[in-house]
Structures are given as structure tokens and as C-alpha cells.
Write a protein that binds this DNA or RNA. Structure first.
Length: 195
DNA sequence: GCATTGATAATCT
DNA sequence: GATTATCAATGCA
């Protein structure tokens, strides 16, 4: 069942936690790709120094985060890689959830075709990797997961086992917010980017 | 370990 | 308008 608007219109951390176990569905050139979300991070705009929208900063890029929950926020990092975020909360409050790891369920051969990767788990165990595997690029920025025919999220009733809270990755510049345990992952799942 | 890469935002003239 | 510092990472050595 496709997740509806109300799922996304909540506080970022709650959305991040509940996105674990949900399925990311992608229509890619006639193929249906499905992957279960196993790792997320929450970024809470106004107060969070690690967020692009810290102190409610509004720029052309961050504008997407101010849309209501359910939209995709996709940006280029390190000049080479795309990162996929799900916008949370209501209009005007820039919360976002970074998807860091997914487990392929369907169309894995197509995903491997989009990426040159040798080891099994390296296909989708990182934010840049999973974007490549699912054919997600910056032109998908601003797409609405609640209505798009090309990409959306589903709930198949799966309930994650033990969920771990941890520090977020790659935000050494964020001062005290470095310490916040706003990263969530399913314990023991091999598609998590790092332990 | 370390090089890669280009959009973005801040800081200048 | 031009210049520069920075970066929610990856892949190869």
C-alpha cells in the first residue's frame, strides 16, 4: 500500500524512524525496482547545524525542503554523487530524511546494470550508491512521493527487528549537533552503510 | 590511505 | 558579475 501524505507530514525524526522497513518503488524505463529502506538520518532544518536549512536558510537549493512532507530533496555532493532525501513535516518547516541504505527486493539485475560494482552489498549500502542503482538524479528533485507515477513508497506490513540510534555520518562541522542520535538503522542488516 | 568533481553559497570587486 | 572555499561520498591504491 502506498504511503499517503499524512505519513510524511510529521516531525522529521518520527518519519525517519518509521521509514525503516518501508519499500522504495521506482519505475525506471519500463522496469519496476523495489528496495527496502534499512538506514535513515533525520535533519531538522531550523535548529540543526548539520542541515542545509540551518537557521531557516532559504536558497534556490534548499527551497525544496520547505515544501510539505512527501517531496523528494535531491542534491549533488562532492561534485559527483546524488543523495536522496524525503521531505518531512508541513509547509515552511524544513525537515528532511536522508536515505542511506536500502535492500534490493526486485529488479536487482537492472540495478547492477546501472552500477559497476563487484561486491554484493556495495550495490546500495550508501546514499550515493543507492541513487545510482535506482537511476535517481537531480532532475527528480521536488518530485512528490504521494502522487508521482515514477517513484513512491509502500508499506507491505514488514516490521523491522531491533532498531539502532546512532550519530550521523559526515557532519564533523556541525558542532553539538554532531552528537545527536538522529541516524536510525536495522540492527544486523548487511545493507546498512556502516556500523 | 587518497584523488576525484562540480554545484552551491559566500565573499569579493 | 567574478572568484573561491566547501562539501549528508565513493572507488581505487
Amino acid at each position: 500500500m502506498r504511503l499517503t501524505r499524512e505519513f510524511y507530514r510529521r516531525e522529521g525524526r518520527q518519519v525517519a524512524r518509521e521509514l525503516l522497513g518501508k519499500i522504495l518503488v521506482r519505475n525506471y524505463k519500463g522496469s519496476v525496482l523495489r528496495a527496502r529502506i534499512v538506514e535513515t538520518e533525520a535533519y531538522l532544518g531550523p535548529e540543526d547545524r548539520a542541515s542545509h536549512a540551518w537557521k531557516n536558510k532559504r536558497t534556490e537549493r534548499t527551497e525544496t525542503m520547505y515544501l510539505q512532507g512527501g517531496h523528494l530533496y535531491i542534491y549533488l555532493i562532492y561534485g559527483m554523487y546524488n543523495c536522496l532525501n524525503v521531505v518531512a513535516s508541513v509547509e515552511g518547516i524544513p525537515h528532511a530524511v536522508l536515505i542511506r541504505g536500502v535492500e534490493p527486493l526486485e529488479g536487482e539485475e537492472v540495478m547492477r546494470g546501472l552500477r559497476n560494482c563487484k561486491k554484493k552489498y556495495e550495490l546500495t549500502n550508501g546514499p550515493g550508491k543507492l541513487c545510482m542503482a535506482l537511476g535517481i538524479e537531480r532532475r527528480d528533485n521536488g518530485v512528490d512521493l504521494a502522487t508521482s507515477p515514477d517513484i513512491w513508497l509502500e508499506d507491505d506490513g514488514y516490521v523491522p527487528g531491533e532498531v539502532v540510534c546512532a550519530r550521523r555520518v559526515g557532519i564533523e562541522y556541525a558542532g553539538d549537533y554532531r552528537e545527536m542520535l538522529w541516524r536510525y538503522y536495522i540492527e544486523g542488516n548487511p545493507w546498512v552503510s556502516r556500523r
